[in-house]
């Protein structure tokens, strides 16, 4: 039984592969709004499954998925690994530190090598923007972007939207339209910010970004966001507050004087949160620097913080992406 046969949302989307015609998932920027909705809707069944005691299906049985991570990761890698295994696929993790990349092999050669092993999907994280697209152009199987440089992290954007959708529905709200979301932190170095801006805007939200000038990318207004340097002003009336960590590993030179000073201006404290809309939702893609960009009292605030829901939705979204992108290879009717 496949979801293509029994869609829980029959009639809302075009039939078969027309609902999601992309071979790979490189970024939210490539997706139409209805395709985002499609992935979110597809993920719901996996949210259900993941809450059962037996969290397993054989839908991707026999398929091999490689998680090729050229950059360190714990949670995203784990999330993709669990997603693949719960779908019954054979999942192999490749860490750059252990690979021939260190021996001077080029990225293209690595891609060709993976391709020659006849894998059915490749999940890639890489430190350079555009690296995942470069690999996708060289291989025959679907490629999923698990974060490329400062460009995009599409599954994070999708999982945040799914977690937010659940939180909104729990509050009796069905739509994102007009929802005011404030994203605060190291916008410059954040692929999560870019994917979230694109995803939330596509769903109808109004996005504000807040950062000190040195961490605010130039020209980001052209993406349709409102920019703030003053966090208090950015919080005014915000219904969702998404905090990002400082990506010290991507900083060359000094961007802020000290973490203490950063917290003084941009830390989400309980007092600051009070400036946002009543019941405002708190999000963070992790890993958190407690006491810097977010205080523990806020991060753990029951009923307001959905940070652990984000992690839960991550597995479901990645299962949905792996399922949808491998349908052609699996010969699912309407997709092959």
């Amino acid at each position: 039984m496949t979801s293509a046969n029994t869609p829980p949302f029959a009639g809302r989307y075009p039939a078969g592969a027309l609902a999601f015609p992309h071979r790979s998932l490189l970024g939210i920027g490539q997706l139409e709004t209805h395709q985002i909705h499609y992935l979110l809707d597809e993920a719901e069944q996996w949210v259900e499954l993941n809450r059962q005691s037996k969290k397993h299906t054989d839908r991707l049985a026999g398929l091999t998925i490689i998680n090729a991570f050229f950059e360190n990761s714990t949670r995203t890698l784990l999330s993709f690994e669990i997603a693949g295994k719960r779908l019954g696929a054979d999942v192999v993790n490749m860490h750059a530190a252990q690979s021939s990349v260190k021996k001077g092999e080029t990225l293209i050669d690595t891609a060709m090598t993976l391709n020659a092993m006849r894998v059915d999907a490749i999940v890639i994280r890489h430190g350079s923007s555009g690296a995942v697209q470069l690999i996708a152009e060289q291989v025959d199987c679907p490629v999923l972007n698990a974060g490329d440089g400062q460009h995009e992290h599409p599954t994070q954007g999708l999982l945040d939207a799914l977690a937010l959708r659940h939180a909104l529905r729990a509050r009796g709200r069905q739509e994102f339209n007009g929802l005011v979301v404030t994203i605060c932190g190291d916008i410059l170095h954040s692929r999560v910010a870019r994917s979230n801006i694109l995803c939330l805007q596509a769903l109808g939200a109004v996005v504000r970004v807040c950062a000190p000038p040195a961490l605010m990318p130039s020209g980001i207004e052209a993406m349709g966001v409102e920019t703030f340097h003053d966090f208090n002003a950015a919080l005014e009336g915000a219904e969702v507050v998404m905090m990002l960590r400082l990506q010290n590993e991507r900083m060359q030179g000094q961007f802020i004087p000290s973490p203490r000073e950063y917290r003084h201006l941009y830390g989400l404290t309980a007092e600051r949160l009070a400036r946002a809309a009543p019941d405002a939702i708190v999000m963070h893609p992790g890993p958190m620097n407690r006491g810097v960009e977010i205080d523990s009292t806020v991060a753990d605030l029951a009923g307001r913080s959905i940070i652990t829901d984000q992690v839960e939705m991550g597995v479901a979204i990645r299962m949905a992406c792996l399922d949808v992108l491998t349908r052609r290879a699996r010969g699912v009717e309407g997709w092959a």
Binding site: G130, D148, G149, R194, P217, S218, I220, M223, G253
Partner: peptide, 21 residues
């Protein structure tokens, strides 16, 4: 300029490229 590979602006921001004004 540092290690920038693009001019700061909308394009560099959308692509997530290290950029300089």
């Amino acid at each position: 300029a540092g290690t920038a590979t693009a001019t700061a602006g909308e394009m560099a921001t959308r692509l997530g490229l290290p950029s300089a004004p």
